[in-house]
Amino acid sequence: MNAPQPVINRPFLKWAGGKAKLAARISAILPKDQCLVEPFVGAGSIFLNTDYDHYILSDINPDLINTFAQLKQAPAAFIADAAGFFGPANNTDEQFRLLRALFNSTADQYEKALLFVYLNRFCFNGLCRYNQSGKFNVSFGKYKEPYFPKAELAAFASRLDRAEVLCRSFEDAFTNLPSDCVVYCDPPYVPLTSTANFTSYSAGGFSLAQQHQLAKLAMACKVPVVLSNHNTPETRALYSGATLQCFDVQRNISQNGQNRGKAKELIASFFPQEQAA
């Protein structure tokens, strides 16, 4: 008989590079301690699929962190108010543009968080992208009936009493780390191909210099650090000295469905006691 598959707790947000499918594998690698620190929390798949006493969830995206903070503050009201945006009247290109413009202009952080959930589910592929002026600019997704993640929002909210949510850089996330913590990093990945260079990849995103800085911080850290990235010669060199696990994973890495397939995945683990040995 085949072994039962582990239950995956899925996040309420769609997120490029989300780790829901790899959550069990990553959880098995993460050392067990009191606190998990995530400098690149994204949609929170690892947060949802691990069991630490305390979490420190951070990301440099203020809209993402604000949404988590608003959900934490008033879960029932937030979920009810977010549901109001999910209906046929808001599932048109014209209405989507109006609500996207409202999201980009409002100073009301509660309203902005509700709209972030709406945009995430109604926009193309659940992408989160901003123009050079910092305005959300993903187009309408044209879905027949976007899914309202009521259960996922409730499940996420139920765990937030164990979590701090902070908007900050990954460099700041590595400062003053608790001695009883483990750090899991899921940064924007390096390009898989030579045609996808770092110049285009880092426009408003993550540069080669930042990849090196993150690896340097992980290597020097006094608590365990586990990182995910693409498996390339560059990342294997970048994480020299770490314990590496390399494998293939199914990922939708192309907008063209016919070009979607296996991606090369790498998990690097830095354990201070092993480095000191």
Rank of each mutant, 00 (worst) to 15 (best):
S269C: 14
T106Q: 07
G44L: 08
N61H: 06
R251E: 03
L99D: 01
L114E: 03
A101F: 05
Q213G: 09
A218Q: 07
C35T: 15
Q70D: 03
A154T: 06
T232P: 10
F85S: 02
F40A: 06
G205S: 15
P146D: 03
N229P: 10
G87V: 06
L153P: 15
A196M: 08
A220L: 06
S179R: 14
D161P: 01
F156I: 14
R97C: 12
S105E: 15
A263C: 10
Y130P: 10
L22V: 05
D186K: 01
P75F: 07
S179M: 05
T92M: 00
L98Y: 04
F116E: 01
E94R: 15
N91I: 14
I29Y: 08
A23N: 09
P39E: 08
L22S: 09
S105T: 13
F136V: 09
Q132K: 13
S179D: 11
S269I: 10
A43F: 02
A276N: 13
Q255Y: 03
S254I: 09
F103N: 07
L71H: 07
F40S: 00
R10C: 02
T235R: 00
D93Q: 08
L217D: 01
S179I: 09
C35P: 05
C185S: 13
P272F: 04
C181L: 12
N125Q: 13
H212P: 02
A82Q: 06
P149W: 04
S194G: 04
A24Q: 08
A3N: 12
C221H: 01
S200Q: 13
D81Q: 15
Q211T: 07
L119G: 08
R97W: 02
A43K: 07
A76D: 15
F170T: 02
Q73K: 13
A157F: 11
F96N: 01
A23H: 10
N66V: 13
S254D: 08
S179L: 11
S228K: 06
Y189L: 02
L166M: 09
S169Y: 07
E145H: 13
S133I: 03
L48Q: 07
Q255L: 13
F12T: 10
Y143L: 15
Q210Y: 05
D33R: 12
Q34E: 15
N137C: 13
K19G: 00
F271T: 08
G44R: 03
F270D: 01
K264T: 11
K222F: 09
W15E: 02
F140H: 10
K21S: 15
P233N: 07
L98K: 14
I60G: 04
F206G: 10
A69E: 14
D108W: 00
N252V: 12
A157L: 12
T50I: 11
N259L: 12
L266W: 03
C246D: 12
P178G: 13
T199Q: 14
Q211F: 07
P75M: 06
Q275W: 11
C35K: 00
N229E: 08
V183F: 04
A16R: 04
F206W: 13
K32F: 05
P88F: 06
N229W: 11
